[in-house]
């Protein structure tokens, strides 16, 4: 541990905690499921970065969305994202959630994930290698350090428009709004 790091710990322990302890919940649809297990198991060992998979969104602060997002999974993604405690970071993994990828003209997948939930970082590729996840994680560290990974704040501030987008594509949502919505006249 160098001196720089120690002074950072002393200045903002909470931020460092969020940075070095990323409990990941991953939403694997499609081919993303193939890339994540090697990352968390012995070959690439994500635990050395403090990234550890957890089972429930309540315990997680990193949300990995790997692969295409169909309408049905979008519902689950929103639900999971809203259940995660603040602060939370979302990383889109692979080209499908970025712009639809090879499903860009499919009737049932969405093209831009960040219309529905805020995304802090993207890892491009089809599919990205496990190393890319680590690069993504280190980039996320930098973002957290510079207070730029503020997707969850954005979600709170612009909840109305996010909710509107969600309702536009999914129809009426079963759950109550997470934040109070001020209806405009």
């Amino acid at each position: 541990m160098d001196r720089n790091k120690i002074s950072k710990w002393l200045k903002g322990p909470a931020k460092m905690g969020h940075k070095y302890s990323l409990s990941a919940i991953y939403f694997c649809t499609g081919c993303g499921i193939i890339e994540v297990p090697p990352v968390i198991t012995a070959r690439w060992d994500a635990e050395r970065f403090g990234v550890i998979p957890v089972a429930s969104p309540r315990q997680a602060n990193l949300f990995l969305i790997t692969g295409y997002v169909s309408l049905k999974t979008l519902k689950a993604i929103i639900r999971t994202y809203e259940q995660m405690p603040d602060p939370k970071y979302v990383v889109g993994f692979g080209s499908c959630p970025i712009n639809g990828g090879m499903y860009w003209d499919s009737y049932n997948t969405i093209k831009h994930l960040d219309k529905y939930i805020p995304v802090d970082g993207w890892i491009a590729g089809c599919m990205p290698r496990p190393e890319a996840i680590f690069i993504g994680v280190t980039h996320l560290w930098t973002l957290i350090d510079k207070d730029m990974a503020k997707g969850y704040v954005k979600y709170r501030e612009k909840y109305e428009s996010y909710r509107k987008n969600q309702e536009q594509i999914l129809g009426k949502l079963e759950w109550k709004p997470l934040y109070p919505i001020r209806r405009r006249k």
Partner: peptide, 26 residues
């Protein structure tokens, strides 16, 4: 981790986790 042939997290990892948990809003 060493038994699994991995590098493993630093020994302070549980402490870091704990700091993080206390800062989250449950």
């Amino acid at each position: 981790a060493r038994i699994h042939w991995r590098y493993g997290p630093p020994i302070t990892q549980p402490l870091i986790d704990m700091v993080k948990f206390f800062d989250q809003r449950g």
